[in-house]
């Protein structure tokens, strides 16, 4: 961003990359937890039933679409707020 030297920019990029990995792992964990909780309800067997398996697949797809959509709204709103005001609670 503004006023960083090249070395600082490189350092920042490395940190961002680490942060993205962390964030991705978080999203992944939440996805597993949510789709497991939503789809798995039969404990008469230890392997996934076809119904459960299909539910998990659809759950992941739908959640990705949902994340994608909310992410777009998030970035729009964020840009609008950043323009509108500076400072205050972020």
């Amino acid at each position: 961003m503004d006023g960083l030297t090249q070395a600082e920019t490189r350092e920042l990029e490395q940190r961002m990359a680490k942060r993205q990995v962390k964030e991705f792992l978080n999203v992944f964990s939440n996805l597993v937890d949510h789709c497991f909780t939503s789809c798995i309800d039969d404990f008469t067997s230890k392997s996934l039933s076809n119904r459960e398996s299909g539910c998990v697949t659809r759950c992941v797809q739908k959640q990705m679409a949902l994340s994608q959509r909310l992410s777009e709204r998030f970035q729009e709103q964020n840009a609008a707020i950043a323009q509108q005001q500076q400072g205050g609670l972020r």
Partner: peptide, 23 residues
């Protein structure tokens, strides 16, 4: 299963993946 599905998705989209969040 979720791990495999995400890997497929991210390959078919070529990298970055569908998650806009986080950076």
């Amino acid at each position: 299963k979720v791990s495999e599905q995400l890997q497929q998705e991210s390959q078919s989209r070529g990298g970055g993946g569908g998650f806009g969040f986080g950076g």
